[in-house]
Nucleic acid binder design. Structure first.
Lengths: 238, 238
DNA sequence: CGCGGGTTTGAATGAGTTCAATCACGGTGG
DNA sequence: CCACCGTGATTGAACTCATTCAAACCCGCG
């Protein structure tokens, strides 16, 4: 729950019962192993999901096996908020690492949100941020070089992870293989590896066991033209 | 108004007064010349826009002048529905051709929609479709070849234009130069031209004066792996 | 007729891919 | 404790798709 509370706290001032309001919605906790689908393409979705731990991906497989990852979902993220009207999904969602998630029936979610305007506001902002992340992904893979793409994505994931965990230590724990970066950035695995080496040799980051340490965040931000504003949304004090 | 009615009619069964309901919202009609901004990056948006005629683009300029077009907005499209809470825009919107648009204050829009549940439903679906278009754009530029990208985009624009105009004649009127295709698809102008020539030589399309005639839609659909489902949403009969 | 925006073509270059081999490392079984 | 395996990361060499630069072309318009 802590990541979700941190996330929601970005948008509203959490009062004493916001926690219980969310916790109180009927839900089911599920665990998925890395690679397992959470939502399958063509499925009619009438659930809202919250990631508790682990990373998930939205993706699509093309006819000949090419895969494009649309975006990553981290602890604290909620998704398919937009699909409160039983739309058929045009893509799949899968666990990228082992994932624990909270599944809520759309109707139950709606009922709670209708009674709690601050929650409605917070989730509305969350949906707006999700859309901003999609736009940024388009800009990233459309007009940026491999180096910029990779650094930019690392910075995004770091910021999102930090915002949800509350820990700002310039370290991004990576529960996924580099192949997922490749499929997210429209690059080959080989080139992701090479590009990561470049960033390492530039002294911008250090690749550890299962994570990335950002050594010079200011310079990396500059090199990748990263502007974090798209991740921030004005906090309201309703 | 006809494009908007057609668009909305994709989502709800238009009853006699839906037309008046929309028409009745306080608005201002504006005209923008090609290239003029409609929404500027960093601007606080508290308007909802409807395109009456012409094409608009959402875009971002990178530090060194590279431009990425995020998506196109066609007659009948409404945009910035999500920004009903005075968010700062993280990108710009500009007229891609001469554009006539209807500008509505968010508050006025909200009031009307709150009184008319079918309209709320319709615009909700419109927002969902917009997000689906963003996801498809990511897949397009992330993992498709130049040929697929271009054909895929042409098919999308054709379908959207046809749905809004009601005319299904396999002809896409193009009010914009090829340079915009380049910036939308993450390609150079030169390569767009070459790729268009390829598609022409394959007998898939004919490039006319100010438009593209789709000669063999089935084959083009196959070649570009175009699956139109992301543009369609279930029609409700409320 | 000549100008100018937009498009096309050619040749050289370059960023990223592919294929294939090697390496690093954690887990497993003998 | 070591041999063995498998997954994921790295490196090299050849190749390809797309870019860049530059020139030519097309066509509507004053």
């Amino acid at each position: 729950m802590i990541p979700l509370i941190n996330r929601i706290g970005q948008y509203i001032n959490i009062d004493s019962n916001a926690f219980e309001d969310i916790e109180g919605i009927a839900h089911r906790i599920e665990t998925r192993q890395s690679g397992q689908d959470i939502v399958t393409i063509d499925e009619t979705v009438d659930f809202v999901f919250f990631i508790e731990t682990g990373w998930a991906i939205r993706y699509r497989i093309l006819d000949d096996g090419r895969r494009q990852i649309i975006n990553f979902m981290l602890p604290g993220d909620c998704f398919d908020l937009m699909s409160l009207n039983r739309a058929k999904s045009d893509h799949s969602v899968a666990a990228a690492s082992e994932v624990v998630l909270r599944r809520v029936k759309s109707d139950d979610f709606l009922k709670t949100v209708a009674r709690k305007p601050q929650l409605a506001t917070a989730f509305w902002w969350a949906a707006i941020q999700e859309e901003a992340i999609l736009r940024e992904q388009i800009i990233r893979i459309g007009r940026r070089t491999a180096k910029e793409r990779l650094g930019h994505l690392i910075l995004e994931l770091y910021r999102r992870q930090a915002a949800a965990s509350g820990v700002y230590d310039n370290y991004l724990a990576l529960p996924i293989p580099q192949a997922l970066f490749a499929d997210a950035l429209g690059l080959s695995i080989v080139h992701v590896s090479r590009t990561l080496t470049l960033l390492r040799k530039d002294g911008l980051l250090r690749v550890t066991n299962r994570g990335i340490e950002i050594l010079d965040r200011d310079r990396l931000t500059l090199v990748c033209d990263f502007d974090s504003r798209y991740l921030k949304v004005k906090k309201l004090s309703i």
